[in-house]
Simulated scan of single mutants.
Amino acid sequence: MTELNKKLLAAVEKMPAFPQSVNQVLKLTADINCSQRDLVEVVKRDPVFTLKILRLVNSAYFGLSREITSINQASVYLGLNTLKNVSLGLAAVGAIPKSAGKRMDMGGFWLHSLAVATATRMLGLKLGVSRDDAADYFAAGLLHDVGKVVFALYMPEEFEEATKRSAEPGVSFYQCERDVIGATHADIGAMLAQKWNLPVELHDAIARHHSIGSGEPSQLLDCLFVANQITKKLSFGSAGDFEVEPLPDSVKERFSMDMDELVEDLPTLDEEVENARIFIKLGEA
C-alpha cells in the first residue's frame, strides 16, 4: 500500500460508523428476498430513528395526503427502496462530525448537496424512473461530495490549499485536489462508501461523478453529473467547486436537451430543495 493510500485510509477510518439499525437496514435490503415485515422490525427497534423517519415522511418533502403514524404504514406508502434511502440519508447526515463546521461552510455544503440530490431525482423521474427507484438518485446526489468532508476534517492543510487554488477562474476543484493531494474527493468518498457498506450503485456514483466517460454508461450517473452542473450554474450553496463543466455529447443525447433547456425543464427546483431541507434538520438533530 502506498503512503498516500495509507493516509487516505487513516482519514476514512476516523469517520463515525452508521448506527447498528441502519447497517441492518442496508444488509437486509441488499437481499432481493427482503420482506417488508423484516425491515419494519429492524427500524422499530430504534425508537429515535423511527421518530425521525415518521417526521420526514409526514413533511412537505413527501407531500402525502394523510398522516403516517407507523413505520409499517410508511413502508407501504413509500416502498422498501425509499425507506432504505431515507434511513441511509438521515444516517449519513448524522454521521458527519459537528467539528466539520470549523473547517468548511457546512450550510453551503448541505445546500449544494440537497440541490444536487433533488435535481438528480427530478431528472431520473423525467427519464421514466419509478418514484421508489428515484430514491437511489436522491441518495446519490446527497452523498456525492461526502469525500470533501473527510478531507476538510482529517487532511485540512491539503484541503485548504486545494480550495485556494480552485478560486482561480477556469480551474476545477477536482484537478486542484489531484495536484495537491494526489487523490480526489471522489476517491476518498468511494473509500468511505465501502466503510459504510453503501449499495454498489451508490458507491459507483460517488466514485465516478466527475468521470462519467469511464466505465459502464449509467443513467443515474448522467443525471447526477447534469444535476451537479445545474446546481453550480444556479449557485445553490457551495462545496468549493464553482467550475461548470460542459455536458458530454452522450449526456445531451440521453436528455435531448442542452444545459439551458435542462435548467428550464426544472421549474420547481427551488421549492423542492426547500422541502428537502428537512433531511438535514432531522439528520443533524
Rank of each mutant, 00 (worst) to 15 (best):
R45N: 11
F138A: 01
L262H: 04
V263W: 04
L220D: 00
F151D: 10
K148M: 10
V57P: 01
D133I: 00
Y61H: 14
I68Q: 03
H203T: 12
T231R: 03
I188C: 08
N197W: 03
N81Q: 13
K232W: 05
A11P: 05
K281L: 07
F255T: 05
V251M: 07
L224H: 04
A205P: 02
M122H: 03
D222H: 09
Y137D: 06
E245Q: 15
I230V: 15
D249Y: 03
F109Q: 05
H203G: 05
V86I: 15
F138N: 00
L125R: 14
E3I: 14
M122D: 09
A207D: 11
L80K: 12
R277H: 10
F236E: 01
A91W: 00
H112F: 14
E201H: 10
F49I: 00
G182A: 11
P19W: 09
L9M: 12
L202Q: 08
M106K: 07
L39W: 00
R103L: 09
L9A: 12
H209Q: 09
A276L: 04
A115E: 05
S130G: 08
Y174S: 02
L88D: 01
C34H: 02
V273K: 01
T231F: 09
S218V: 05
T184R: 13
S250E: 14
S35Y: 02
S113H: 08
L4D: 10
V171Q: 04
E245A: 15
L125V: 10
A285P: 04
Y174F: 14
Q36K: 15
M259K: 06
S172V: 06
E3G: 13
A30S: 13
F151R: 02
L125Y: 06
L78R: 01
I230R: 06
D249W: 00
P47L: 13
P16L: 11
V116C: 08
S99T: 14
S130D: 03
A193L: 07
G283S: 04
L83P: 01
S235G: 05
V200S: 06
H144A: 10
E67R: 15
F49R: 09
S214N: 12
A193K: 04
D258K: 11
E243V: 07
L282G: 04
I53Y: 06
D38P: 00
G283R: 02
N5E: 13
A17N: 14
E274K: 15
E3P: 05
F242Q: 13
E157I: 09
F236M: 12
M1W: 05
S70C: 02
M191C: 08
L9W: 04
A190Q: 10
G141Q: 03
A17R: 13
K102N: 12
S75R: 03
G240P: 07
S113M: 11
I68E: 06
Q229W: 06
K27S: 12
S172L: 05
R178K: 15
V244M: 04
A91N: 03
